[in-house]
Write a protein that binds this DNA or RNA. Sequence first.
DNA 1: TGACTTGATTTTGTATTCATAATTCATAAT
DNA 2: ATTATGAATTATGAATACAAAATCAAGTCA
Lengths: 227, 227
Amino acid sequence: MDAAELSDRHLIVRRSLHDEITSRLRNLITDGDLQPGEKVQEAELCLRFGVSRTPLREALKALAAEGLVVLQPNRGATVARITAADIDELFPIIGALEALAGELACARIGSGEIAALRRDHYRMVKHYKRGEWAGYIKLNRAIHDAIFAAAGNAALTQLYQQMLVRTHSVRFVAKKSAPRWQEAVEDHEKMMAALEKRDGKALAKILTVHLQHKADMVREAMDALDK
Amino acid sequence: MDAAELSDRHLIVRRSLHDEITSRLRNLITDGDLQPGEKVQEAELCLRFGVSRTPLREALKALAAEGLVVLQPNRGATVARITAADIDELFPIIGALEALAGELACARIGSGEIAALRRDHYRMVKHYKRGEWAGYIKLNRAIHDAIFAAAGNAALTQLYQQMLVRTHSVRFVAKKSAPRWQEAVEDHEKMMAALEKRDGKALAKILTVHLQHKADMVREAMDALDK
DNA sequence: TGACTTGATTTTGTATTCATAATTCATAAT
DNA sequence: ATTATGAATTATGAATACAAAATCAAGTCA
């Protein structure tokens, strides 16, 4: 038994089964193994996870509370679908959360953290210039996460993550529409500038607009898929 | 069978037990029948509700996802406590949600709704002047709810309600500290003015500050209780 | 052919059971 | 008297069992 295992045993860790299942189910959904609108087959998943229906159904109740699945009485659970109306509702909320995070971050972030963010930003821009979408996305996500971390508000971060998960299915349908991608990179450049000036109001404003742009991008992509 | 009952049967309504229990448990908590930190006794509540442990435990999982109860592995559920740190985290979030709601409301609200709000506002001020706390609170709540309703963003409203529920135990500990109460009424007067001008930016700003004031008020009250 | 029954099968919701972990309480040791 | 120790009790977590609802499919009738 190594140190980690030992400390694990003595600290928290003994997650209950339903908690474990909740995470794994959530991952199945965000990874796209379970598609939006798809029925959640209890029996099949019980087999897959090697557990009984009890903890699985408890997990479904928790995910329903998070808005990731919808429960229909006597008709089981399905993976939540994101509609155009949901985009209109959720992205402004995410924007408001990011704006708050940005403002808090400006007040608390250290210069070392800003420098690290600037380095990530440059690396992200490099990926953009090379047209490397995956690498770009990864750093993009890291930058937004870092702003939330710098904000030092755990509840805010948790809420943000929850909203991201709820919108996972549409956040990257957009792929790389050239003008929208450029717009996003420009937004990020402005974000860095505001952060380096520690101008919380400015950063908040930019993040709000940035999320409006993201919503526009997603709407365009959804329209393109529909037709 | 009357019309309402009939349409009920054919529309949504047949709530599953766990859903019903979730609501009732939530009410027990917000009504203070179950105090923060108190253990949630499964057996006792099963008896009380006349159901088995299964739906009750499902309800607990959902309420845990909402942050209303905390589950400790093998040690059951307790009603979540709100700490001073939680105030610092949650109230700014509520402020951001209210700010967004205010901005959206300014863009969408009709003049009739504004007039109704103004009437509620006057009635609220009347309660304030008479020192009638209960009546004041009720209208205060109605006004904030009306702003969210006018915003026309169901997800935003739901998130707001969830945050209100999470902070229920401290939102009115403050009772009526005279200067804070006056401050709140002044905030509301400014809110009405901004709304009547449909000045979304201004209303957002006022609501953010209003929630900061509320947080201050709660912190003062908590400090007073601690000593 | 096509819509509607009706019965079999599956799925869901809830209760019950069982194993295990935590708590309590009585007893013993310091 | 106070703190350990351990058996008895209770509570919790998970699996299973059972009842009710929904789905599916074959057959009936227009």
